[in-house]
């Protein structure tokens, strides 16, 4: 494989999605080509920078889930939010399009929402067992 072909594949060598044959050909070339090794190192560095930058995107607001749920037919009757952004508890009561009441609760840990209870999931799980 020539340098030009290898360089065109390096971004996907870095993200680990080349086929076995392509990855082997790139690896073989890089082992003997200092310029392409340098290109690999800089592309790897760039991929890390891109990931970090995109990870810093503002969080998706919870209101979007409320809108999705409402639009697909689930109506929220009420909710209660306790604690802070870093540590808290959310409780909610809603009615699905099928007319079933749903109680949900989730914990908020370091800003991440972790579901801990849903009456519908509980019914479904007990129905399966």
């Amino acid at each position: 494989m020539e340098c030009e072909q290898v360089r065109a594949l390096i971004p996907w060598y870095v993200n680990g999605t080349l086929s076995g044959d392509e990855a082997a050909a790139v690896a073989e070339h890089i082992a003997v080509c200092a310029n392409c090794r340098e290109e690999l190192a800089s592309t790897h560095q760039l991929s890390l920078q891109v990931r970090t930058a995109i990870d810093e995107t503002p969080p998706l607001p919870g209101r979007v889930w409320d809108r999705v749920r409402t639009e697909k037919g689930e109506v929220q009757l009420g909710s209660l939010d306790l604690g802070s952004f870093l540590l808290g508890l959310s409780l909610g009561l809603s009615v699905t399009r099928r007319g079933r009441a749903r109680f949900t609760s989730s914990m908020r840990l370091l800003g991440r929402q972790v579901p801990i209870y849903s009456t519908i999931e509980k019914e479904e799980n007990s129905g399966k067992s």
């Binding site: 594949l9 971004p11 996907w12 993200n15 999605t17 991929s47 891109v50 930058a53 995109i54």
Partner: peptide, 27 residues
Amino acid sequence: HVRTAIDNLPPDQREIIFLTFYENLPY
């Protein structure tokens, strides 16, 4: 700085960068 550089790319290039380096999609 990096976010600014990505945002300043033309849309079709931004998209390729996102899909390759963030979503790890094959070409």
